[in-house]
Nucleic acid binder design. Structure first.
Length: 303
DNA sequence: ATCCAGGAACTGT
DNA sequence: ACAGTTCATGGA
């Protein structure tokens, strides 16, 4: 991770295989998104780091990520370090993407995508509770409604900061959700099950039996998968999604994902969606990078 | 109206 | 292990 301060701005120096504007397209895919805002090419997000709430204004200038602080808070060097590391993690910048491109350029399905979306990285959800809760919200419903649920959830239970008549939201603390009842979420049109799953996950995280650190300590992706799937409400799809978007495992592969199926159908000009078996077949070359293949295919569904 | 959506648990065999 | 059923609601 490379960064330095230039006056009141932070400069972050990402690896060469990174295109901020390409990532902005993905971040801008829903008008109902509440966790960040995009305005005039800048990405705004409220984060809580080192106990401080900080609004970040993120832009790019030729190979450099530039971060400004609209709240003008005097930030300690430890907080600044956490800002840099948050952004590094958000855009998955530790991933050696050149290795993915090396074979993807020769792959019949991926070559067009990696050329079109060059520099796109998986947009991560560094917070485990947010990643799990969002995945559960998205189970078996259309994305638009999933975003509606998230917006209600965040605006009901999250904290916010308003500057210049713009309101920015933090994802609700798991401690707060752990103290909620199913009925509190039912009011927002969560199903009983989704409410139970999310409250259960919130309790597990706030009690300390579940955490990102504990999962990452397991090293092996399969063990992490198994550990996640022991939790009620987390099946294979959610476990893969969280490994991909939160735990930075590029081998995670949500193979049953309907978005993936739809993207493959369109990309291959098929009359129907491919079967799991067919996807397994066409993904044999993707070993080690199934998560990135999936993400680039998801990207092809937006414009 | 009908089908389906970035699934998972439960039940029966 | 595997298939069928239930949950639940909005979008197209």
């Amino acid at each position: 991770m490379k960064w330095m301060m230039m006056g009141s701005s932070m400069e972050i120096y990402p690896p060469p295989e990174f295109n901020f504007k390409e990532c902005l397209v993905f971040l801008g895919r829903s008008d109902l998104e509440v966790m960040h805002q995009i305005k005039a090419g800048y990405l705004y997000k409220l984060v809580k780091l080192n106990g401080e709430r900080i609004v970040l204004k993120i832009g790019d200038t030729s190979k450099v990520i530039q971060v400004d602080f609209p709240m003008g808070t005097p930030l300690s060097s430890t907080t600044l370090e956490k800002v840099a590391s948050y952004i590094w993690e958000w855009f998955d910048l530790d991933q050696p993407l050149a290795a993915f491109y090396d074979f993807a350029r020769k792959d019949m399905i991926l070559k067009e995508l990696v050329s079109k979306y060059d520099g796109l990285r998986i947009i991560c959800l560094p917070d485990l509770f947010e990643a799990l809760a969002w995945a559960i919200m998205g189970q078996q419903i259309n994305l638009t409604f999933a975003y509606t649920l998230k917006k209600r959830f965040v605006e009901q239970f999250g904290e916010s900061v308003t500057i210049n008549r713009n309101t920015f939201w933090l994802f609700p603390d798991c401690e707060k959700i752990a103290s909620m009842g199913v009925d509190d979420l039912r009011k927002l049109q969560f199903t009983v099950r989704k409410a139970e799953y999310i409250i259960g996950v919130a309790k597990a995280i706030s009690s300390g039996v579940l955490s990102k650190e504990l999962l990452l300590q397991k090293q092996d992706g399969q063990r992490i998968q198994t550990a996640l799937m022991k939790i009620r409400g987390i099946g294979a799809w959610t476990a893969d999604y969280v490994r991909m978007k939160c735990l930075h495992d590029p081998t995670a592969f949500p193979i049953a994902d309907v978005g993936l199926h739809q993207a493959l159908k369109l990309q291959l000009g098929m009359e129907r969606k491919p079967t799991i078996g067919e996807i397994r077949e066409m993904s044999t070359n993707w070993e080690g990078w199934q998560g990135y293949a999936t993400f680039y295919l998801w990207r092809s569904l937006y414009e």
